[in-house]
């Protein structure tokens, strides 16, 4: 049994984001991390491996050459090998183009489960798992709070407003998991050292038999505007008042906004 976890390198959550002239995220100017929501998928895969349900965990990323750092970080947490699809033609790829590339790479790797985080921390489209499943023609088990495997099926437990669903499908599948799977482990020192010696293979579009023009032409979306979020209005402070007076002020403030 083999799981391939897709890993995206994203700007650090707290980093200030800048855009290039053609409205792409300027990745060179920001500190990059492993997409925090992908860390849950990694954790889920490694737990399945520790339980004996999975023999091999590999990672797959699409991104600039620097995304190898994110893959090394994933390898430091565990797993056997990693693959990076990098190609100048992929700059500015949207979710659909990304899904086509990942699907082609997954065809080559042929895992029983392609496991993904529920969203990326930068774009938050949450479209890629569904698109990859559609392109590959395999079932999608999305938003699992837990993934389990057995008897040729994959099963996710998915929280709902009123309880939970258990959804299962025959292998192979694409699955995505939420932050409910359990806290991701930290990379240990030995893990970091071992990661440097693990296989990290780089593929171009040609290696996947994909045509750059076709992929880029396949982008279904176009960014027309990008701007930072509007600054929050200054915080109103109520200070140096007695408890009664402060409570009255807060109640008045809430009442004026029809919140109480």
């Amino acid at each position: 049994m083999k799981i391939v976890v897709t890993v995206k390198q994203v700007p650090a959550t707290t980093a200030e984001k800048r855009y290039t002239a053609d409205l792409r995220l300027d990745r060179a100017s920001t500190e990059s991390i492993v997409n925090p929501l992908d860390e849950y998928a990694i954790e889920q895969a490694l737990r399945l491996q520790e339980s004996g349900a999975v023999a091999e965990v590999a990672y797959l990323s699409m991104g600039p050459e620097s995304a190898a750092e994110a893959l090394r970080r994933a390898l430091a947490m565990g797993g056997e090998e990693a693959y990076l699809v990098t190609d100048d033609a992929l700059a500015g790829a949207d979710e659909w183009a990304t899904a086509r590339v990942l699907a082609a790479a997954l065809d080559k790797l042929a895992p029983d489960v392609a496991l993904m985080g529920m969203a990326s921390d930068d774009a938050r489209g949450s479209l890629v798992p569904g698109a990859v499943a559609a392109i590959r023609g395999v079932p999608l088990l999305s938003y699992g709070s837990e993934l389990s495997l057995g008897d040729g099926v994959a099963r996710v437990r998915r929280l709902t407003a009123t309880g939970f669903d258990i959804v299962e499908a025959p292998l192979p599948v694409v699955a995505s998991v939420t932050d409910q799977v359990g806290e991701p482990r930290y990379a240990s020192l030995k893990g970091i050292m071992a990661a440097k010696r693990k296989t990290l293979e780089t593929w171009s579009l040609a290696d996947l038999g994909l045509d750059a023009d076709a992929i880029h032409g396949a982008a279904l979306t176009r960014v027309v505007e990008a701007r930072p979020p509007e600054a929050k209005p200054p915080t109103e402070r109520i200070e140096n008042l007695g408890a009664d007076e402060a409570a009255t002020k807060i109640a008045d403030w809430l009442a004026a906004r029809k919140l109480i």
Partner: peptide
């Protein structure tokens, strides 16, 4: 211990990380 931070001064043959 889990992060291998207690064995940084010991040789790898003894289970350390020999930083």
């Amino acid at each position: 211990a889990r992060q291998d931070l207690l064995g940084t001064g010991f040789e790898e043959r003894h289970g350390g990380t020999a930083l």
